[in-house]
Computed example of a mutant assay.
Amino acid sequence: MALQDKITQVWVKTTGRRIDAKDFAWLIGPVGDTDIIKDTFVTKLAKEENLEICKNLPASGLLEQIEELGLTDEEMRRLNPRVADFYENTSEYEFEMWSEWKGFFKPFGKILSSVFSKRLQQLNLPLKAIDTAKGLKSEIIKLKCKETQKTKWTIWYRIIKSTDDVIYSGIYTTCKNPNHKTPLLKVIFPLPNGNASVVMKKNIEEDGALLLSSDGKKFGDNGFYFTLTDHKGNYWARFVKSMHEWIRVYEDEENILRADHHLNFYGFRFLDLHYKMTKKSNP
């Protein structure tokens, strides 16, 4: 195991808290190996849980149904149907992406890339807008029960075409946090012996946009978490209250479907990611 991974895991153990997997089931999720993450965890997870790997099936979405987020009837009426379609049929879309690192945070992006991202092939946040000029390669991978064909896990696997680096290899699911009345969206990024999870609450805005936020202030809130395991049933978790994210999915004034992803560190905006989503043309 690399030294930087050991340091991170010691930090989680010493500054986080020991958790019981049963009491904090909403935080538990798939973990990665000690080597390159990339998409290797997909095969490992499918084997461990006896699941079938299905890639890019027609009309595959990050969510099976948008209602999984616990939307009320009023929220469903207000939600832009194109936003719902994107989450339910993500494989039918093509993506363009622009990145913007803010001021003195640019060196942080380079450090993250050299120490963790390039080696693990995970969270390769683009350092320059030109890095994503050729677009993204996007795959929706479903891990399904072999008997019932019911989806257990959904992975969104995205690669920067110009560099062939993995920008995201995230597992999309929902979780029932006891501190919230309705399910939260949870995105799990497997890391060595653990994972990073972004737990987000939803809000349907007046214009029909979907706003997802991980801006909680304490352990148990929506937010950013590191979870670690020793593979013997012991778990530790660290709530990172300095990290906040907002993702707004909306239709702009030109009827183009877009998403704006803002990331803050200690209240300072350090990275903006902007997406343009276009429905694929029928062959």
Rank of each mutant, 00 (worst) to 15 (best):
T182A: 11
A209H: 00
L185G: 04
K152P: 02
K142L: 15
S169I: 07
K202Y: 00
L210F: 04
W156G: 09
D207V: 06
K144W: 09
T148Q: 10
N193F: 05
G194M: 08
M200H: 02
L191W: 07
I155N: 05
I171W: 02
T151M: 14
R158G: 09
C145H: 12
P178H: 13
N179D: 09
K161I: 13
K176R: 13
K186F: 02
P192E: 04
N179C: 06
L210I: 06
H180E: 13
K144S: 10
C175V: 12
K152G: 06
K146H: 14
E147T: 12
K142G: 12
P192W: 01
A196N: 07
C175E: 02
L185Q: 11
T154K: 01
K161C: 06
T182S: 15
V199W: 13
W153D: 13
L191R: 07
T151L: 04
V166N: 05
V166E: 06
K186Q: 09
T151E: 09
K202S: 09
F189Y: 13
S169A: 11
T173G: 04
N203T: 13
V199L: 12
I167H: 00
R158S: 11
P178F: 07
C145A: 10
I160C: 00
A196I: 11
P178S: 05
I159T: 07
I188H: 01
K146Y: 04
K202C: 11
Y172I: 10
T174K: 03
N177P: 11
K161S: 13
K201I: 08
R158N: 11
I160S: 01
F189H: 14
Q149M: 12
Q149D: 15
E147L: 07
T151Q: 07
I160N: 01
T173I: 03
N195L: 15
K176N: 12
I167P: 05
P190W: 10
F189A: 10
V166A: 11
I171L: 13
C145D: 15
K142F: 06
N177F: 05
F189L: 10
W156A: 14
V187P: 03
H180F: 14
T173W: 03
N203K: 12
K161L: 14
N177R: 09
E206Q: 01
P183D: 01
N177Q: 08
K152S: 13
G208Q: 03
Y157T: 06
N177K: 07
I159R: 11
I204T: 02
T154C: 06
K150T: 11
S197V: 01
V199C: 04
L185I: 04
R158L: 05
I160T: 02
N179Y: 05
R158W: 03
